[in-house]
Design a binder for these strands. Structure first.
Lengths: 261, 261
DNA sequence: CGAAATGTTGAGTAACATCAAGTTTAGTGG
DNA sequence: CCACTAAACTTGATGTTACTCAACATTTCG
């Protein structure tokens, strides 16, 4: 839970001095300049589609980095919308909280994916964003982003695409929740993670779950017991190899078969 | 099903001559210039936030209207993405079709709401858009829209907001499908329609359902029987007055209570 | 008017939730 | 480093919600 905890993410940790200096300040101020130009995620993140010159200009004007320790909230429901975020390392969940006090996870966000897009319209956040592990995000103040987009067609276009892809993602999930049984939901979830790891250049059939069974169940509209039973069954049937949160997909086709496409 | 059927929507029907001329041609060509400047939806639609001068320029450059008869498909899954659409009158459903042949409704779209936003990213449509009744849409070719947005900050901003609000909508629905029981889902659905009618300037507690019980069930992840039973129960308990598709909300608070906010 | 589509209601059933007990793993302080 | 505690996970027994199947009523449309 502390900043001293080693980052388990693929992106190299900042120098020790920098980390130590962070500990002495409250988290929100812990920022420094980012550089998309040298980031290994630039091909799948916001600058995708921009020329090198455009990216460099973009870097200097806009983005800063910020560390978020495991369990810490990046932004909260009701907070004023200022910026959108790109996950640089680690991972996040977005959580909606109803009046009943029960929470509902609306999404998991991996490196290269954006956070906060839903708040552009209402100018305030509708969800909490919580780090699943020690993480780092790039901060893009939205007003500056809009101004930059007016001058850079590639950036405007990419912003439209990014927003659009978030809509597709959600619609897909709706399908999942509204039309699938428990087995299909979990299979679809695993396949979704697999695709997203592959997009980042990792092996698609071997990865670590960043979230608990409870979080998976919450997200999929299932109880923790159902998730656990299904994982056991998938393992018994040879679809998955499981050891805690280490997942090995043994039969991608078997999973796809369950989901139905 | 025919164009001769009177439009039941709030927007005045085009002149009879125009309607007749449409019948003789295939639907997709049935277009003529739109004019946001004189449209009663301009406050809730794409031009929202633009000055009168900007709207007029926008009109001339971009938008055309198109009629879509009940049951007719505006665009289909797999078709190349060319334009986004604003519902001008009538209503639509968007339908995803899985390989199993079963369809899943991912959204209902009322006047002033946009269609096709999810396709910007992938450049091809991921859903079918089908008219629930005789309808009219405004067609905004996306390439032209992007070009116009580069010159008009208010338009760019409104596009971002529109896309963002679609994300919020979907996330909200996810919550609905993943965390609510049948009763809560239907109550939330009715309240959502109520809010949207109110936004259009109609009475919030008296409206006509544009969709069948089956479509409602499909959308909410419930069977038609469950929807029917719940409607009967809501009526019995004095929450709703129902006569076919005519809905009267008798106890908005009762419904909100069920949903939990 | 008659056929097809749509909607209602009842009885039985299956899928998933709930309740409960126990095991394993991770985190903490001595 | 080990013991201890809390958190996370697994598995079984039972219960409930919503689905399935079925029959029938009503409405819409040609």
């Amino acid at each position: 839970m502390s900043y001293a905890t080693a980052l388990r993410s693929p992106v190299p940790m900042a120098s020790r001095a920098a980390v130590v200096s962070l500990v002495s300040r409250p988290a929100p101020q812990a920022r420094h300049a980012a550089s998309c130009g040298s980031c290994c995620l630039r091909g799948v993140c916001l600058p995708c589609g921009m020329s090198e010159a455009e990216i460099n200009r973009f870097d200097e004007l806009i983005s800063t980095k910020r560390k978020v320790a495991r369990g810490v909230t990046l932004y909260r429901t009701g907070e004023r919308f200022e910026a959108i975020y790109a996950v640089r390392s680690g991972g996040f969940k977005t959580v909606g909280n109803s009046r009943h006090g029960d929470e509902k996870i609306t999404g998991f966000h991996m490196p290269g994916e954006m956070l906060g897009l839903d708040a552009i319209n209402s100018a305030q956040h509708g969800y909490d964003a919580v780090a699943l592990e020690d993480s780092e995000v790039c901060v893009f103040p939205f007003a500056q982003l809009e101004a930059a987009a007016m001058k850079t067609p590639a950036l405007q276009h990419q912003l439209f695409r990014t927003l659009s892809s978030d809509i597709s993602r959600d619609s897909g999930l709706m399908l999942l929740l509204g039309a699938m049984n428990a087995e299909q939901r979990l299979a679809a979830f695993i396949l979704s993670l697999s695709r997203r790891y592959q997009r980042l250049g990792f092996a698609p059939n071997r990865f670590v779950l960043r979230m608990t069974r409870e979080e998976i169940g919450n997200y999929l509209g299932l109880t923790i017991e159902t998730v656990s039973r299904l994982f056991s069954r998938f393992q018994r049937e040879g679809l998955l190899g499981l050891q805690q949160r280490d997942v090995e997909i043994r039969s991608p086709d078997g999973l796809r078969n369950l989901v139905g496409n």
